[in-house]
Design a protein around this nucleic acid. Structure first.
Lengths: 207, 207, 207, 207
DNA sequence: GATGAATGAGCCTTCATTCAT
DNA sequence: AATGAATGAAGGCTCATTCAT
């Protein structure tokens, strides 16, 4: 009995539907990151997304599904993120690029969900008994960072900017420390960020 | 007119009672550290301590009280720890002592609850609306580390082993990173610990 | 652009919601009155209201809130009660009106919650450490009876129907006895009610 | 292996044992009366009796047993009470004796457990699903009052001091009111007790 | 006899999930 | 699509009762 005044816009409807879903996922990512997974309540996500909690269950079947779909979506979005493209085109030295990446990681804003994803992954990897698909997801996302940063570490070692040693392991240590820090209290790093980032970089920079 | 048939064991009883309480506190520290405060269930503590949940409430009045008493107890135990005494007497250079301290922090064992305390404090400081006595506790415990390590940093800077700059702030960054890492996944640090600790120390060591 | 398929029933929904809440409050009043406040379990209220215990918490935040909101609601309902209006218009003598009021108090039925309120207030005033808002509520409700009956006592003393003496104190004794009785076993008073009420009235009637 | 220095005092031991038990029962009666049966905790009785809660279970098998044994004991003690004997010997008129009895009922003291028994019975009779032996007990205790007061009412009616009518029923109303009042707030009656008791007596006194 | 350690059933409350509208 | 009413499993805490000493 609904009268469709513009009968051709099936796509627009699809679009709108996805928009709604994205709105919820965006909220979910933020709330999961801020509160931890277990401590995040559906009502918190619904409130952040400004929808009723009932609607959340219209788009997702369970809290777990909200988490994995949102995370997957966020990782996909992130990949399309400007950061790494910008970095590559900056023509800066590898170490300088790592520094910029690190600073970016500490910069939180609503549109940049990178750091939220970091924190969620942190949270996930410290919990046990994860379902397989979540494990895969975390794995994949981590892999993305590794793949993006590996060339920079490799290049840096070649140019002598970065200390020698097993590249992968060095990268592992760096990323572990970075994500640990971000899982904790990102606000600490806001002040004197540049100086602090430089301290961090001393770990890997040869001098 | 009361005849005590076994008059000798008053102390023993007291002893046993304290032992029981300690057993629960030990369990509590571990479980709180592993799962976070909110997510720790009384039943988990009870199970870890191998007692019924009812007994936990025989020794403590509430979950909050379990937390604060256990934490206080653990901090006290920790202070009595050999580490800092041993360090001082080692006659090593300041940087070397910091290294030993760092390695110690990553060494987890049942008797050494240091890392658990670290993680709980981490968890506490990221939650808001703490009761005052908990704030004080966290404050005090953090202060203990600062006071213990400050002289080493200061001395290291004087001898040139450690980079220059505001001592307190440098120490702050170092401890923040250290506790962040430990809050996360101490197991990661077990492998190649010495090498990893050296990487960490590069942050502050002058070269 | 939202098309409301059944746009007429917003009020009905509100109506229904209030009805549900009233249903729970009605049950609460009954159960609180029958069992005392401490001994009333949420499950009893839920069962009486034929809803799940979870739903009770959908409408109220705590047992305390159930109590105070229900009581407030009941007192409000009671005030709108016909009794006092009917009495005034009956043109009967003061003593006769007091008799009618007393009989009314012993008449229990589902719609008349007066006696339940009486019993709850009885229960409340014998407990210590009440929150202030409950104290106020009890005070206010008691005041309502006092204000309604005082003129009757006063008038009755003037006409000589009622024994002389401090009006307020006399009223106090009468109401205390009345509420004590009702807090106990109202069923006892069902039989031969009229005769029993007459016995009661002898306390205050001059002859 | 206990050496009995005075081998003949088996009775003394029995005596002492009973004394201990009486101490607990005395406490139980008080606490049950003050708090209601369900709301009385074993720990409250133990505390009042200044023994450990474990000892309570040495003398009684369950809370129910504490209640019934204590009540039975108290009723027995009460029968031996001076009140009724004193009354009879006072040579006062029946109405006067009823007045004295009523005043006595409002007089609470540690040694006089009458009013406590009253309140406990009140509490019992308003609960449902009593075990049979408790029903009997309540019945019996009530019967005692009825038997003690009945002659006074009967006599009073004969002398014209008390209003005519079914003696038993009149006595029933009077006792019901009395026990209702006492179940509630005995403290109210402390002030101006004599005047208030006179008001009460107006119910039954002919004039 | 006497103590209090130890247990577990049961209650209040929260929250993920389902369902009627 | 959207809301919020409704349910029930699970966790914190209390307390009657049992048991070791």
């Amino acid at each position: 009995m609904k009268i469709n005044m513009a009968p051709l816009n099936n796509e627009q409807i699809e679009q709108k539907k996805n928009e709604r879903k994205a709105q919820i996922m965006r909220a979910a990512i933020k709330v999961f990151a801020d509160n931890g997974i277990k401590l995040t309540k559906i009502s918190m996500i619904a409130k952040e997304a400004k929808v009723s909690h009932g609607l959340v269950y219209h788009y997702f079947n369970s809290k777990d599904e909200i988490l994995s779909e949102s995370l997957e979506w966020a990782i996909e979005e992130k990949k399309a993120d400007q950061v790494f493209h910008d970095l590559k085109e900056s023509q800066n030295s590898p170490l300088e690029q790592i520094k910029q990446f690190t600073q970016f990681a500490f910069t939180e804003s609503d549109t940049e969900i990178t750091s939220s994803v970091f924190r969620i992954m942190q949270n996930l990897s410290s919990s046990n008994g994860l379902p397989d698909h979540l494990k895969d997801l975390v794995e994949k996302a981590g892999q993305f960072y590794i793949e993006s940063l590996y060339p920079l570490f490799y290049e840096g070692q070649k140019t002598g900017e970065i200390i020698q040693g097993d590249t992968e392991e060095l990268l592992g240590v760096y990323l572990t420390i970075l994500s640990s820090i971000m899982a904790d209290d990102p606000s600490f790093w806001k002040e004197h960020m540049e100086w602090k980032v430089e301290i961090l970089l001393r770990m890997i920079s040869a001098r």
